[in-house]
Amino acid sequence: MFRTAGESLVADPEGNLVCKADDREQLVTVTLDLAKARQRQEKVPWLKLRRPEWYGSQA
C-alpha cells in the first residue's frame, strides 16, 4: 500500500489555494475555470519557454 502524509491541495492558475484536504482519507472535488487557466497560459507562456534540449534523456 502506498501511504502519503495527506493534506493534498488544489491551486488556481495564480497559485491561490482553492481547496485543501486534511490528513484523513478523503475525496476532494473542485470545479476549475478552464478559461481562466487558458488566459493565464497566454499571459505567462511557460510551455513556450521550455528548453527540452537542456534536459538530455530526461525529456
Rank of each mutant, 00 (worst) to 15 (best):
V10S: 04
S8H: 11
P45Q: 08
V44H: 07
T31S: 13
V44W: 05
R3P: 00
C19I: 02
G6D: 00
P52C: 02
L47R: 14
S8L: 07
D22Y: 10
A21E: 06
T4W: 00
L34Q: 07
P52H: 01
Q39L: 15
R24W: 04
F2Y: 04
V28M: 12
E42N: 07
Q26K: 12
Y55L: 15
Q41M: 10
Q58G: 06
G56C: 04
K48W: 07
W46E: 11
Y55R: 14
A59R: 01
K48R: 13
G15D: 00
K48Q: 13
C19R: 14
V28Q: 05
C19A: 15
P52I: 01
Q41H: 08
L34R: 11
L49V: 00
E53M: 07
M1I: 03
R38H: 13
R3S: 07
P13C: 01
P13E: 04
T4S: 14
E53F: 04
E14Y: 06
A37C: 12
R38L: 13
L32F: 06
T31F: 11
W54I: 07
L9S: 15
G56M: 03
D23S: 14
G15M: 04
S8M: 10
K48T: 06
R51F: 01
L27D: 09
G6I: 03
A21C: 13
A11H: 01
V18A: 06
G6V: 04
Q58H: 12
